[in-house]
Every structure is written in C-alpha cells, then in structure tokens.
Design a protein around this nucleic acid. Structure first.
Lengths: 129, 129
DNA sequence: CTGAATCCCTGCCGATACTG
DNA sequence: CAGTATCGGCAGGGATTCAG
C-alpha cells in the first residue's frame, strides 16, 4: 500500500476535512452547524412534532402547552434559518401558517436517533453513588 | 395483520418509549441527556481531542490555545459528570492528571459523525440569496 | 390566528488573580 | 502543573403586551 495523505495525521473516527482541524469554535464546522440548529430549549421537541407531519402555529402550541408564543416563534425562525423547516402561509382569513420539514430537516431523524441511542445508554446520573 | 399496540400511535422514526412522548423538556429524555453532555462552547472540540487518545490538562490547552483554564476546567467537570471521560491523577510531583474517554465517551464518535454529516449537507447560510 | 416588542432574570463564558 | 475564586458582559428564555 502507498503512503497516506502526507502532511497531516489520520485521526481515527474523524473526517479527513480541514474543518476537523480547527483549534477554536467555528461557525463553519459542520458539527457546530448541526448543534446550532438543535440549540436551545424546546428545539428538539418542535422538530419531533414536525417529524410526524405538517403543523400550524397553534397545533404546535397545543402539542407543547408549556411553550410560550415568543419562544415558539424564536424556534421556528431559528429552524427556518437553519434550513430545517419551511413556512407556508395560506392567504385569507383567519391567517393560517403551516410548518413542515424540508428534506434537510427530515434528515435530522437519524441524528436525533443517534442522540437518543447514546443518551439511552448513559448511566442515570453518575456511575458512582 | 393484527392491530398495533393499542393505546398510542406509532410515530415514524421515533422510539417506542414513553420518554418520546414528553410535552416539555425533561432531563430524563435520552436526547436531552446527550445534548446536555455536548452542551456549551468548546465541548465538542475537547471531545475531539480525547477521541485521539489520552490527554493532560496542559495537553488540551496546547491543542486549544484560545480556551481558558476556567472553561476547560468547567468542560472537564461537565464531561466527567456526564460519564464521558475519566480523570486519572498521578501521585508525585509535578502533578499530572490524565483525561481519557470512557467507553460511553467513545460512543460519542458515531454521534459526532452523525452531526458532522448533517451539518456538512446543510446549505452554507440560507438557500436563498 | 400568527406572530413581534419589551422587560427582567438567570446562566454561560471570558479575563484575571490566586492556591495546592 | 492543575486547577479554583471572583467578577462582569452578554445572550437565552419566560411572561406579558401589542400588532397584522
């Protein structure tokens, strides 16, 4: 076999990408991008709802009663900006806006599954007691 | 075919677990547990370093020069609490403490990979321009 | 119905200084 | 070398109020 990509070491389990070499948090790092999309309280619950299908603003509020208007609005804006979901405003009265996941948003399913699996395998609090 | 688990609906892509039904953020939700372990600036970079092998406090500081003592200390405590890494203090002088991932910590590799893959597939900022 | 604007409180993180 | 103590700035998130 030949030598392997001279000039940098191969790191086990890490992508061979320059963005994997940053020495400080960088918004262009894919991991940061993903965590930034998931960041914040309520975010994953909103995504969970939308993974089940299209929802309206009020539909989301009904599903998550303890979530305030402001934060829901913030989350929807954040997730729209992150390319996770799309708004579809229907003309007429009363105003109705439907939110649905983009293809990129649907791809969060496996990501959340990976997070779930890891968390489910974690010890309840601390191993020691 | 027979009926399927009467009493609740099957949700596509979501685990059949009561913790998947919460209507507000819950510390016992596996996704929350995982995100809580990864939460905070610098956290994933510290994990990345330790995925490459055991490190000392100073070793981590050298790898991440812009990371302050306090935050590094915070992160190491947080990750220890989360069961991601272990401290090994060596007796004698000068004091040397080694940090290494636990088996549970190593399992974060695939999780970070999933996050990376999703973030790498995301549009740079917003699709529209 | 679907949000945006404001206020306040809390928790995070960076800088600095200090200890075993 | 390996941390902790303290402080200040800033962003996140909840409650309330107002607007299209």
């Amino acid at each position: 076999m030949t030598h392997q990509t001279v000039g940098h070491r191969v790191r086990p389990g890490l992508p061979d990408d320059p963005r994997a070499d940053v020495t400080e948090p960088s918004p262009s790092c894919p991991v940061e991008i993903a965590l930034s999309a998931l960041r914040g309280r309520w975010t994953t619950l909103v995504i969970r709802e939308l993974l089940q299908g299209e929802r309206t603003f009020t539909g989301l509020r009904r599903a998550l009663p303890a979530l305030s208007d402001k934060v829901l609005s913030d989350r929807l804006a954040q997730l729209t900006e992150a390319g996770v979901l799309e708004r579809h405003r229907e003309p007429g009265w009363p105003p109705r806006t439907h939110y649905r996941l983009t293809p990129q948003g649907h791809r969060l399913g496996p990501v959340l599954q990976a997070l779930w699996d890891w968390g489910a395998a974690a010890p309840p609090v601390t191993t020691a007691s």
